[in-house]
Amino acid sequence: MNFTEGEERRDLRAAVAALGRRYGHEYFTAKARAGEKTDELWADAGRLGYLGVAVPEEYGGGGGGIGDLAAVCEELAAAGCPLLLTVVSPAICATVIARFGTGEQKRRWLPGFAAGTTKMGFAITEPDAGSNAHRLTTTVRRDGDEWVLDGGKYYISGVDEVEAVLVVARHVAPGAPRGAGPGDRLRPSLMIVPTDAPGFTHRHIPMELVSPEKQFTCFFDDVRLPLDALVGAEDAGPAQLFAGLNPERIMAASFATGMARRALDLAGEYARTRTVWDTPIGAHQGVAHPLAQCAIQVELARLMTQKAAALYDAGEDRAAGEAANMAKYAAGEAVAGAVDQAIQVHGGNGLSSEYGLGAMLAASRLSRIAPVSREMILNFVAQHTLRLPRSY
């Protein structure tokens, strides 16, 4: 077993970290507060090949794995530029298309993912389904030479800046009632839906998050799509779906550990330089020990995330799913604790705009909720790892 990253991965981290520092937290926050996008950073990351590290080489990518893309996500977050759409567009959408797309779909979409010139959203969440994917009511049915999509999605990231959205819909047989009931067996279909498709509308959800990526409610009213909008089999089952959701969990964990590293860097610098009664406050165990505990939890979460990525890249889907959930849980807890403790170390300065920790508070707390809540992960581990009776 090898617990160290290879030279190429370390070089990638260093290069991405340098790019992140060149833009920095001030750039990111200013853009977010002004309601603007971080297009310059995204374009540079794409031009330098960082967004396409996991896209196959034949389509212009780096030919690496989800572990490489997770390293990109983590280093940008650690530099104060956490780009939420890296979790969605190159991780979920590009991965699903690379694994299950037709030759034409791969040629159409993957070069854009590799270059960072294409952004695609991902839509699974619904208001009444929550974490229960078996209760999805958005449906897709075939009508001659077209698919017809009906329903709605909730809390979908970046719809205002993507070219298309990969929508998870319940496949219904021809002639079945519109909006087939949630009691039916889940037969998920993955559909590429252009954001300018007739019948597709979206509405912004105001959030307290300081982020350039916005959240939206999406509505699909008789959206007609060509047959080649379908990615993979029309009712391939949850296995095809989780080919995208496991990378999402790995990326979300890296997003969280990157934020946690930044919070601890800020707290450490402040504790070394803030002097009270002629002594740096970091010399006191009441300050030092809580930060040390946070640092341990962050490193444990990073290690679990790297294990999950290695399992996924090795094709061990079942083991990767378990590890990805554990990594996501550990990272969510670690970042929430690290940001909270960093604010405490700063005292009143912890909520001042100068230090930027207050803006991280909501984002760090969100890591315990999305893209899958800590409670659902605990349910998963209890049922699948410990083989306990299902609790819901």
Results as ranks from 00 to 15, higher is better:
Glu104Ala: 13
Ala98Pro: 04
Gly175Met: 15
Ala129Met: 02
Ala129Gln: 04
Gly179Arg: 15
Gln105Thr: 09
Arg135Cys: 00
Gly179Met: 15
Gln105Phe: 07
Ala133Thr: 09
Val172Glu: 14
Asp160Glu: 13
Leu166His: 11
Lys153Asn: 09
Val96Asp: 01
Arg107Gly: 09
Trp147Arg: 10
Ala169Arg: 10
Gly121Arg: 00
Lys119Glu: 00
Pro177Phe: 11
Trp109Met: 03
Ala94Ser: 11
Thr95Leu: 08
Trp109Val: 04
Trp147Pro: 06
Gly121His: 00
Pro174Leu: 14
Phe122Ser: 01
Val140Cys: 05
Val140Trp: 02
Gly179Val: 13
Leu149Phe: 09
Glu161Asn: 15
Gly103Thr: 13
Arg107Cys: 07
Val87Leu: 13
Gly158Lys: 09
Val96Glu: 04
Thr86Asp: 07
Arg170Thr: 04
Pro174Ile: 15
Gly103Ser: 09
Glu161Pro: 14
Ser89Gly: 10
Gly103Cys: 06
Val148Arg: 11
Trp109Tyr: 08
Gly151Ser: 12
Asp128Tyr: 08
Thr139Lys: 09
Arg99Cys: 04
Lys106Phe: 07
Arg135Ile: 02
Ala173Met: 15
Ile97Val: 10
Thr102Phe: 05
Glu146Val: 11
Thr125Glu: 03
Ala164His: 10
His171Ala: 15
Thr139Val: 07
Thr118Asn: 06
Arg142Ser: 01
Gln105Val: 04
Glu161Ile: 13
Leu136Lys: 04
Gln105Glu: 05
Trp109Asp: 06
Arg142Gly: 00
Thr86Phe: 08
Leu110Ser: 00
Ala115Asp: 02
Ser131Phe: 06
Val165Ser: 12
Thr117Trp: 05
Lys106Ala: 06
Asp128Ser: 07
Arg141Cys: 05
Val167Trp: 08
Ala176Asp: 14
Ala164Ser: 14
Lys153Met: 03
Tyr155Cys: 14
Lys119Ala: 00
Trp147Asp: 06
Thr118Lys: 10
Phe100Cys: 06
Val148Ala: 02
Gly158Ala: 12
Glu161Tyr: 11
Arg135Glu: 00
Thr102Ile: 11
Glu126Ala: 03
Glu126Tyr: 03
Thr118Glu: 09
Val165Asn: 09
Ala164Val: 10
Leu136Tyr: 01
Ala94Tyr: 03
Val87Trp: 05
Pro111Tyr: 05
His171Cys: 15
Gly112Pro: 02
Thr86Met: 13
Leu166Ser: 12
Val159Cys: 13
Pro127Glu: 02
Val167Ala: 09
Ser131Leu: 06
Ala169Gly: 13
Asp160Trp: 14
Ala91Thr: 14
Arg142Gln: 04
Val162Met: 08
Val140Asn: 02
Ala115Trp: 05
Thr95Gln: 07
Val162Pro: 05
Val87Pro: 10
Pro127Asp: 06
Thr137Asp: 03
Asp145Tyr: 13
Glu104Val: 13
Gly144Met: 15
Tyr155Leu: 14
His134Lys: 13
Asp145Pro: 12
Asp160Cys: 14
Asp150Leu: 12
Val88Trp: 04
Gly151Ala: 14
Leu136Gly: 02
